[in-house]
Simulated assay, not measured.
Amino acid sequence: MTLLALSFTLVFVFITMFVSYWKKLDLERSIAISCIRAAVQLLAIGYVLHYVFETDHIGFIVAIIGVMIAVASWNAAKRGKGMSGVFWRIALTIASMEAFMMLFLLGLGLIEPTPQYIIPLSGMTIGNAMVVAGLFTTSVRRELASSRGEIETLLALGASTGQALQGALKRAVKFSLIPTIDSLKTVGLVQLPGMMTGMIIAGADPVEAVRYQILILFSHAASAAMTSMLLSMLYPKLLMTRDLRVRQLPED
């Protein structure tokens, strides 16, 4: 693809910005900044990966994955305004999911131990866990506000913190997994996932591309569920005060 052909895609951005201006949505600046950031970040990582793939040094791979985890944790933690310690809980969860998935895929020989496989798959795993963590944190905040009376009543009746928060955390887990479950239900019928599409465009056999995509889908579905469930075990102390009262969190 030439740079001229790529530049034509800016038409979609300009149309979106025009509609935002026309409807007075005030999204033009956000759209422009987001698109510029995305282009710069992708071009930068393209050059970085080109160098890493050539050197094939384990230190560079670990550094890139570490940066991915830190940025993903920071982005998801922004949803937890007023929840002290939320960043480290999310970082620990995402790092655990990344380590588990890589050990599983490499241990069973499902992927080759090269940067070309490890870094892209790590990015997908970490990004998926970031989305789930953000949705879970958002849902927890809403559940805490709407279920405060229910939680405090259960505590007054002698329930433990875990028992009192169980309903709210259970609903938050379900909410955070809605995109993952809906995606599994409609894949192949509504959407063709990016990895499969990329392999087909690159000339790979469609059946082989589907096999890799199934591997990614199943592993990401498992990591998403485990991310949400692990956070539900790490969050209770963030939601209650030391004297067992529901913490008052600031509004978004």
Results as ranks from 00 to 15, higher is better:
V48S: 05
M124L: 15
V67P: 05
T114M: 07
R211L: 09
Y117P: 02
R89S: 12
I201L: 14
P236M: 07
V187Q: 06
Q163T: 07
L157A: 15
A224Q: 02
A76T: 07
I178F: 03
Y117G: 03
L238T: 10
I65R: 01
R242V: 06
L92V: 12
A72K: 09
F104Y: 14
S147V: 00
G167K: 12
F18M: 10
P120Y: 09
A72C: 12
I36Y: 00
K170M: 13
S122H: 03
R37A: 09
L25R: 13
N128S: 15
A204H: 07
M1Y: 04
L155M: 08
S7C: 06
H57N: 14
K174P: 01
F60N: 11
M196W: 00
F100C: 05
M101P: 00
F14C: 13
A63S: 13
K185I: 14
L217I: 09
G198F: 06
K174M: 09
G59F: 11
V207E: 05
K170H: 11
L4S: 13
T138E: 14
T161V: 13
A129P: 01
C35G: 00
L110K: 12
E98I: 01
I201P: 05
A225Q: 01
E98S: 10
A70V: 15
P115R: 04
L239F: 05
K170R: 14
A39K: 00
A44L: 14
L110M: 13
E98C: 13
T114Q: 11
V67S: 11
G167L: 10
K185Q: 11
V246C: 08
I15L: 14
L239V: 08
L10D: 06
I36A: 15
L49V: 12
T55K: 12
T114I: 15
A156W: 00
L238W: 06
D252Y: 15
S73P: 08
A77D: 06
E143P: 01
F53D: 00
Y212I: 05
K174N: 12
L157I: 04
F60Y: 15
S219K: 01
L3M: 08
L192M: 13
A145V: 10
G109W: 06
I126Y: 07
L110H: 04
N75E: 15
G107K: 05
Y117F: 12
S7V: 02
G134H: 07
I151N: 02
I94H: 01
S228Y: 07
L234T: 12
A156N: 06
Q116R: 13
I45A: 03
E152N: 08
F218W: 07
V246F: 04
A32Q: 02
F8R: 08
M233T: 12
I64S: 05
P193Y: 12
R37L: 13
G167W: 05
N128Q: 10
E208Y: 05
A145P: 03
L103Y: 08
R89N: 12
S146E: 09
F100R: 01
S73E: 03
L10R: 04
F12E: 03
A145T: 09
F14S: 13
M233I: 07
R142Q: 08
I64W: 04
K81M: 09
L10N: 15
S219D: 04
L192V: 15
F175K: 14
I31G: 07
W74P: 00
K78I: 11
L135D: 03
L6W: 02
I200V: 15
F53R: 01
L238G: 15
